[in-house]
Amino acid sequence: MSLSPLTRTIEYGSEEDGPFYLQHIRRPGPFERTQHMHEMFELYYLYEGQRLYFVRDRSYHVLPGDLVLIPQREAHSVSDYGKPGHERVVMNFSGAFLGGMLEEAPYLLDAYGLPSPIVRLDAGGRREAEELLGRMIREAEQDRLGREFALRGLLGELLLFIVRFARTHRVAAPEHVSPLHGKISDIVRYLNARYAEPVRLDELAEQFDISGPYLSRMFKEITGFSLIEYVQLMRVREAQRLLETTNEKVIAVAEHVGFGSLVQFGRVFRQLTKTTPLRYRQAAQGKRK
């Protein structure tokens, strides 16, 4: 495979209308792993190459023709796999960007609730998906009348295609890349269920019959996050939910999700969300009015 570099990026939108981001990129060589969690839905399509994607609680070997669908606030990371070099398109969008389409067709986001975040397209599905993605990329490149309207419509078409494909084809999680990836997945699920409890590396290693240093190193290599980074992400995600849906005091929320002090909670929350817990709650309440 011989790839020439290419980057196309468009990002715009507002809090009221909803943000939208599209990037089509072709990289001929290795690329550093990226990891994050954000408020928007993510849609990723791989044209060429191979990637290793960690989503939710396990890693996936992503191949050409694979769609990766990541819901809001889902920790995820992506890294090189096999021979360096790949071509992909990634989109991030909010529900607000789709506007009234979700009222008429709430099933447009159903694919984000599938058992597997990987939708492996057949030859016909690839042709249809790539035709829609090509139209989106060409539309995004041209600053002309109705661009946002057109992109919103094309995104709706793409999401509808994915939902229809998922309803007529078996969408199952691929096998684990290796037994070690399976064990790390078991550990992630364990942490997802017990994020509010103290995390002790020696106890975790003993429970899963693996040495502490090796567990720590492989967890970071496979997920993209250190143990403490991952646990803090899960704690902050639950804190966001509680701040949005309850009237619990901030200190009570901090204790509920496992932070030892309000100061630590505020520092980590701000680091991951770029705002304070109180401001986050105020903004969430404002959106509901």
Results as ranks from 00 to 15, higher is better:
residue 272 L to W: 04
residue 233 L to Y: 04
residue 202 D to E: 15
residue 151 L to V: 00
residue 139 E to S: 14
residue 16 E to S: 07
residue 267 R to D: 06
residue 258 G to L: 12
residue 226 S to R: 08
residue 20 F to H: 05
residue 134 G to N: 14
residue 210 I to K: 01
residue 45 Y to L: 03
residue 211 S to R: 06
residue 27 R to E: 01
residue 235 R to S: 00
residue 224 G to T: 02
residue 127 R to N: 04
residue 84 P to I: 12
residue 149 F to E: 08
residue 238 E to L: 03
residue 248 E to Q: 09
residue 284 A to D: 01
residue 164 R to Q: 07
residue 120 R to E: 15
residue 23 Q to D: 09
residue 128 E to W: 01
residue 239 A to H: 00
residue 53 Y to I: 09
residue 46 L to M: 02
residue 92 N to W: 13
residue 207 Q to A: 10
residue 52 L to P: 00
residue 231 V to Y: 02
residue 261 S to H: 14
residue 166 A to Q: 02
residue 196 A to V: 05
residue 118 I to G: 03
residue 276 T to Y: 15
residue 135 R to S: 05
residue 240 Q to T: 13
residue 53 Y to G: 00
residue 125 G to A: 06
residue 246 T to C: 06
residue 92 N to A: 10
residue 56 R to D: 14
residue 106 P to T: 02
residue 8 R to V: 15
residue 230 Y to T: 10
residue 259 F to Y: 09
residue 91 M to T: 02
residue 206 E to L: 14
residue 254 A to C: 08
residue 170 R to N: 08
residue 272 L to A: 15
residue 239 A to F: 05
residue 17 D to T: 10
residue 17 D to I: 07
residue 55 V to D: 04
residue 186 D to A: 10
residue 157 E to P: 05
residue 138 R to Q: 13
residue 182 G to A: 10
residue 52 L to N: 02
residue 37 M to F: 02
residue 12 Y to S: 12
residue 249 K to G: 04
residue 251 I to C: 01
residue 283 A to L: 09
